[in-house]
Design a protein around this nucleic acid. Structure first.
Length: 510
RNA sequence: GCCCCUGUCGUCUAGCCCGGCCUAGGACAUCGCCCUUUCAAGGCGGCAACACGGGUUCGAAUCCCGUCGGGGGCGCCA
């Protein structure tokens, strides 16, 4: 019996445990669930699996909610928004689990297990060492319930295990993998309630998914071998089965599980780097899936309409930072200028380029600079580095490439000419610059790259950057504005450069 | 060790279910050219893959078997 017939509204869930920052793999699972729900007009449930008291922390739940919201995924039911099948935090559903465990106990489908943990651990290792399957021996299987209860009353501790049939096959049709089959002979009786009274994962998941009427369980491949145990539980209760879909893992470049070693892996880190949530979602969707028409830069809405779970690739995907950043650049381009400035500001402030408050003229100017400098930037955190083109001028620390450009005779001539022509000037702008370069071209016969390249080095103290017709007006204007770190205007730059590099005006003796 | 999943360019993938339209398509990365006063962006082009071995078939990336590789699981973690 399968839960979802086509008339029923789809209900999916994302069920993280609050034991750390949310990881790209989990975020992808959340996204796929969300896309499915939104596309089919279904319901997306957020459930917090906090039964591991050792590792779960309330602040992690807060982070998790923030990260998901930032990504743009919203849920219809959850610990923070409520819903008719709550509570949505497993730690608040303990009584429910006990109630259903009791039911299994009473009709003989589960039993108390008094085996001490150390003993089980020993047996497990022994079995592994001998090459046997380390499944539970079934030692407490036949202790009558009455006897077990007496032992409990006398103070003994016990876990509760599900009785798994000794043979048979569990089969299910996985939405992404097709038919999957497990042999019951290899599955030991799993613990469903620990001796400390907390439900085990495989148990609480089933109780919750069933009670919350979840129709599609979309989760990571690491859960695939839990699925038969869970199906057994559905069967024990005579509950309809949901549709299962197991997503492949996300790997690092070296084909091992993605970890900090590979770079940023938490959603939180990407947010701080200045990766756009829509770009991240766009990329995450491409881990195992690709759009049918070949258009790759997609908004969340487009993803919702195009996404198709049954076309998701079954093999593990390697996380490719290059492609993520490429998508991020594409999404940045799509942003309106005001949004670009808004997103850039925190990074500029942190770098000390901008003060706490900003005058209207400064803001307008900054917006134009951001617009120009954002071209080709992977992520917003790279922006302050780009801004140094305008805010920093260090002729004493020329890069090798820049040094080379000004070392030729012709370059020297060009620079001397400019120094000479600007020596009496008190005003400078692009028109003046254009007139002077015209004169220099005529007088020296130097043109093109030979002419402009050295001039660029002189004005910026670096070998690359904005085009000069954009750079000069920006710097001239910026120099008159009020910033924590003042901007040097072109004349200052020319004089300082000449001084540091020992360039004498043309015509005068060296 | 046992079980399950998986294997198309360096990477993400299309094609596979329903063999011929595949000379295997797209994107990222990379290389080259064009544009440009540099870089970037943009445009154009190049390099580059059906893991291997057997079948089945007139014909196989597509179907079957085996080998090898990768991943996951085998908890009183989730």
């Amino acid at each position: 019996m399968i839960r979802s017939d086509s008339t029923e509204k789809i209900r999916v869930r994302f069920a993280p445990s609050p034991t750390g920052f949310i990881h790209v793999g989990n975020a992808r699972t959340a996204l796929f669930n969300w896309l499915l729900a939104r596309q089919k007009g279904g319901v997306f449930v957020l459930r917090v699996e906090d039964t591991d008291i050792e590792r779960s922390k309330p602040e992690y739940e807060k982070n998790l909610i923030e990260d998901l919201r930032w990504l743009g995924l919203d849920w219809d039911e959850g610990p923070d928004v409520g819903g008719e099948f709550g509570p949505y935090r497993q730690s608040e559903r303990l009584e429910l689990y006990h109630q259903y465990a009791r039911q299994l106990l009473e009709n003989g489908q589960a039993y108390y297990c008094f085996c001490p943990q150390e003993e089980l651990e020993r047996q497990r290792e022994e079995a592994l060492a001998q090459g046997r399957s380390p499944a539970y021996s079934g030692r407490c299987r036949n202790i009558p319930l009455e006897k077990a209860r007496r032992r409990l009353e006398s103070g003994e501790q016990a876990a509760i295990r599900l009785k798994v049939p000794e043979e048979g096959l569990v089969r299910f049709n996985d939405l992404v993998r097709g038919e999957v089959e497990f042999d019951l002979k290899l599955i030991g009786d799993p613990i469903i309630v620990r001796s400390n009274g907390m439900p085990a994962y495989n148990f609480s998941v089933v109780i919750d998914d069933a009670l919350m009427h979840i129709t599609h369980v979309v989760r990571g491949e690491d859960h695939i071998s839990n699925t038969p145990r869970q199906i057994l539980l559905y069967q024990a209760f005579n509950w309809p089965l949901p549709v299962f879909a197991h997503l492949s893992m996300v790997m690092g470049k070296d084909n091992t599980r993605l970890s900090k070693r590979h770079g940023a892996t938490s959603i939180d880190q990407f947010r701080r780097e200045g990766v756009l949530p829509q770009a991240l979602c766009n990329y995450l969707a491409f881990l195992g899936w690709s759009p049918p028409e070949g258009k790759e830069v997609l908004t969340l809405e487009e993803l919702v309409s195009l996404f198709d779970l049954s076309h998701v690739n079954r093999a593990a995907a390697i996380f490719d930072y290059d492609k993520l950043y490429w998508l991020n650049r594409q999404h940045i381009k799509l942003l309106p200028p005001s949004k670009k400035l808004e997103l850039a500001l925190p990074y500029l402030k942190e770098a000390g380029l901008v003060g706490a408050t900003l005058g209207p003229a400064e803001e307008e100017w900054l917006s134009r600079v951001v617009e120009l400098l954002l071209e080709g930037v992977d992520k917003f955190s790279d922006l302050p580095q780009k801004f140094s083109l305008i805010f920093d001028f260090q002729p004493e620390a020329l890069a090798e490439e820049a040094r080379e450009i000004i070392s030729s005779d012709s370059a020297r001539k060009v620079l001397q000419a400019l120094v000479q022509k600007t020596s009496d000037l008190s005003d400078f702008n692009y028109e003046v610059f254009a007139r002077l370069t015209g004169e220099i071209k005529k007088e020296t016969g130097i043109k093109g790259k030979e002419l402009y390249h050295p001039l660029r080095v002189m004005l910026t103290a670096r070998a690359s950057g904005l085009e000069l017709d954009k750079f000069i007006p920006l710097v001239e204007e910026g120099a008159r504005l009020n910033f924590p770190r003042p901007i040097k205007n072109c004349l200052q730059r020319i004089r300082e450069f000449a001084c540091v590099l020992g360039i004498e005006p043309a015509g005068k003796p060296a």
